[in-house]
Every structure is written in C-alpha cells, then in structure tokens.
Design a protein around this nucleic acid. Structure first.
Length: 444
RNA sequence: GCUGUGGUGGUGUAGGGGUUAGCACGGCAGAUUGUGGUUCUGCCAGCCCGGGUUCAAUUCCCGGCCACGGCCCCA
C-alpha cells in the first residue's frame, strides 16, 4: 500500500467544506479591503529564495533540477514569488497594488502539529505605498479576517523594528561591519534573548556607555497594550540623541487600526522585536493563539524592503502578512470542539436544499430532462444510481444529507404526478412532474 | 538538531508466545416489489514493514517506516 509522503495531508469532503468556506471568507474580506487575488507557480527558480533568505535556506527546500539542469524548487513561501511577479508583470499597473494570494508552500523540515511539509498560506501585500496608514490598512485586514472567521482568544503582538534601531544607532552602535555580524545586529539579538550580560559585554567592546543597558532592559521588559507607547516615550526621552520618529509612527499606526477594525481580544506592544530578518523596516506584527501551544503563531507580517532585489527600490518598503491557513483552522477546530459546536468555519454548511431523485422501476432517461432543469434552476440534485428498492433508497437519501426525496415510478410517469417527501418530518408534498411545481414544493 | 509515547478491519477499540484475534460503528445484502431512520439475520474487512530470539511471534528484542506530543529552529 503506497502511503502519502511524510508531512502531507489528504482532505476529505467534510474537511474541504471547511477549508473552502474559510478560503472564501478570507477572500471576501480581502476583496472588501480592495485586494485582488493573484497566483504564481508552485515551483520557482532556486535563486529567487536564496536571494531573499540566503544560501542557508536550501537545506529546507524541496529543491531539484529539471531535465534542462535548471535549479528549481517548490516554493517555501509566497512573498518572494509575488515580488517577482510584480517586477516581471505588474510594473505598469497603477500603484499602490493591493494583492492577495493563497496556495500551498513546501518546506523540508520535521513536521508537527500545525507544521507540515506541504502547508497552505493566505497572504496579502500592499505595494507602492508606505507609512503608518498603509500598515494600519494591512493590519486592520488581518484583524477583520480573524474576527470574521470567528477566532477567539488570540493576541496581536505588534512592534516596530525602527524603534530599537533608532535607539541603538542613537547611542552609537554601527549598522555595518567589515567582518562578521554588525554590532547593531548583535545588540538586537541579545535583547531578543534577554541576554543583558551579553549586551553589556558588547557595549564595552564598542566603547559605549554601559549606562544604556538598564534603560534598554526596561524598554524590552515593557509589557501591555497601547499604553506601552507612553511609557516608552518617557524612557527614550531620557536617552540623548535618540530619535522618536519610529515610536510616533507606531502610535499613529495603532490609532488608525483602532478606527479601521474592532479591537483584537488581546493587544501586546513589544518595542524590542527583532524578528531576525533584516528586510523588515517598520512595524512588524504577529498573531498568536495560545491553544496551539508551541506552534501558536498563526499570522505574521510587517513592512519590509524586498523589491530592490528586483530593481524596484523606489517601491520599497511594502507591507504585507502571511496567514497560516492550516494553523488558523486548527485553532478554529479546537475552539469549536471546546464549545461543542459543529460549525467550525462560519458558512461551511451548504444552505441550498439537496433533492434525492429516485427513479423507481423506470428507465432513468424518463427523469433526466427534469434533473437538468432543476439543476439549472439552482437546486442540488443527486440521482439514485444503484437501483435500490424503496426502503434502501430512502435510507440512501437520508445518509447523503438530502432534505427532500422524489420517487418517480411507472405510475407517476403515467399520471404526470408524484410526491416530494420532506425527509426532516416525513411530510409528503404532491407535485406535478415539472420543474415549476417541484420548485414550489421545495420552497414550501 | 534533541527527545517522549504509540501502531490490531475503512473508523474507534479489546486481547495476547500456540486464540475460529473479540466488540462497536461503517459498508453491502436479505427479512420488506411504491416511500427511510426501529429491529433481526447474513456478508465484507485487520495484527505497519524487515530482521532476530523461539518448536511456535500479531504478542518479546532490534532496526526501519508511519502517527501523536515536548524542546530548538523557523524566510
């Protein structure tokens, strides 16, 4: 028996109902925010991702050579492909662009709950505009999506890489280095790991006053929502030469988000986020769901500079986020189970009635015209295909979830009459064997 | 990269060195040739793979594969 490759999943009919409902819910929110869907290839040139993330990523890629010995890889994420597409195809479009995308990505790593080798990402990028309002637009969309999906108990973590950069630059740390890691990057790493001894040692080696360690520690330990900005402002105003521009921008972004979207269940402002990634330039944000445990991050994004890699530096920075489609669904499933709810994703149930058409001791050709007409009127019709006897046919109709059954036998054909049976209560509705009559019975 | 637990029909499980490997759900058929959901009966279908120990392994041991977790990491 051949099995699925490790780290992949099959989705049966019940699960796909939820996934399709979730995707269209996300798409509808994106649409209302002015975003248009795009799609890029499942595989790309290997260079696309090494350019963005460095040669180290190759170990985590499904990379391969094609018959022309071209180095290719299954895509591990969607931001870089969309950037490539913008540079290749969309230069002439009116800016800013609001693009959304959805599809599977592949990473060769050990898989866990919420972490698969083939996983699905939904995301958006807003390209060709920058600033607090742009960030607010993007983050508000993220909030609205999660809110509309019915997700509860999630936390929006938001920060601004510029705050810390401006502080560290202001006190004299350099952003460049002839060899090895720039001092600025080292400092950010120490702060991210809360390694204040390491930070102190770094400052000593860079001839920077260790008096700055204490306020930096305080800054990194600030916790809370929007009021954190006020505390940070007080703290930073005591440090000479430190610009408050980034902090002002973050505050402006937060204010606009407050107007564009409902308040998230929990908001956490963190001013020393590093995110390790040097292409982030402004606000960065993540959404965490505690129920998911170790793989609790369901969404992440921010303002970043990547288009310069494609010769479009004038469009940098852009702002976007990626949403972990599978993880959000896991969270929704867990929450629905905890509440004893059947509905995991709003709108997952197909509302239009299903009619079980049961040809009984007649040739099926007698009812096919009727079936066609009913279907083109929007009714879901399923024909009994196994010539079951009446009792079994009814059991079949029930088990496929139909709301109505219509048995058509020789007598019905002769008389042009039949009865539509409503399965919920057994009520029999007499109909004439034509589309109009049946439709009105279904709507009764 | 480190590490824990587990793998018995399609699903959920019981059992256990020699068994007709039990039960429930499911699917199919019959009782029931024009209106289901009850009931009864029958049928379908299983010990993850390889090696070892043994007279005998689904059961014990080792390895692999797969599954579910916890750290680390995560563009």
């Amino acid at each position: 028996m051949v099995q699925r490759p490790r780290g992949t999943r099959d989705f049966g009919p019940a699960e796909m109902k939820r996934r399709l409902a979730f995707e269209s819910l996300l798409e509808e929110q994106a649409r209302r925010h002015g975003f248009s869907r795009v799609q890029t290839p499942i595989f790309e040139s290997l260079d696309l991702f090494t350019a963005k993330s460095g040669p180290g990523v190759v170990s985590q890629l499904y990379a391969f050579q094609d018959k022309g010995e071209r180095d290719l890889t299954l895509r591990p994420e969607l931001t870089a492909p969309v950037m490539r597409m913008v540079a290749e195809e969309l230069r002439n479009e009116t800016k800013p662009l609001r693009l959304s995308y959805y599809g599977q990505c592949f990473r060769y790593e050990e898989f866990k709950k919420g972490r698969y080798r083939e996983f699905y990402q939904y995301g958006v990028e807003l390209i060709g505009a920058t600033g607090p309002l742009v960030e607010a637009e993007v983050i508000a969309l993220a909030i609205n999506m999660l809110n509309e999906a019915g997700l509860k108990n999630w936390e929006l973590r938001i920060g601004h890489v510029g705050v810390l950069k401006q502080v560290l630059t202001g006190i004299g740390l350099s952003d460049s280095s002839d060899s090895g890691e720039p001092p600025l990057a080292s400092a950010m790493r120490f702060l991210d790991k809360s390694d204040f001894d390491g930070l102190r040692t770094l400052f000593e080696s860079q001839s920077i006053s260790t008096d700055f360690v204490a306020p930096l520690q305080q800054l990194s330990e600030l916790k809370g929502g929007q009021e954190t900005i006020v505390s940070a402002r007080e703290l930073l105003s005591t440090m000479d030469g430190v610009s408050l521009d980034a902090l002002d921008d973050l505050e402006s972004t937060l204010n606009s988000i407050g107007q564009l979207a409902p308040a998230p269940p929990s908001l956490s402002v963190n001013l020393t986020v590093a995110r390790g990634l040097d292409y982030y330039t402004g606000t960065v944000f993540e959404v965490h769901v505690p129920e998911l445990g170790g793989e609790g991050q369901v969404l992440g994004g921010g303002s970043y500079k990547l288009l310069h890699l494609f010769g479009l530096a004038d469009l940098d920075p852009c702002c976007g986020f990626g949403l972990g489609f599978d993880r959000v669904l896991l969270a929704l499933e867990a929450q629905a189970a905890a509440d004893g709810r059947d509905e995991v994703v709003p709108g997952q149930a197909d509302e239009s009635p299903l009619l079980a058409m049961i040809p009984f001791n007649i040739d099926a050709s007698e009812i096919l015209d009727l079936v066609r007409e009913l279907r083109s009127s929007g009714v879901r019709v399923e024909i009994e295909l196994r010539s079951r006897k009446i009792g079994k046919a009814m059991g079949w109709a029930d088990s496929i979830g139909s709301s109505y059954a219509l048995v058509v036998g020789p007598r019905d054909i002769e008389q042009g009459q039949a009865t539509v049976k409503r399965l919920a209560d057994g009520e029999q509705l007499p109909v004439t064997l034509n589309t109009k009559s049946i439709l009105s019975a279904l709507n009764a």
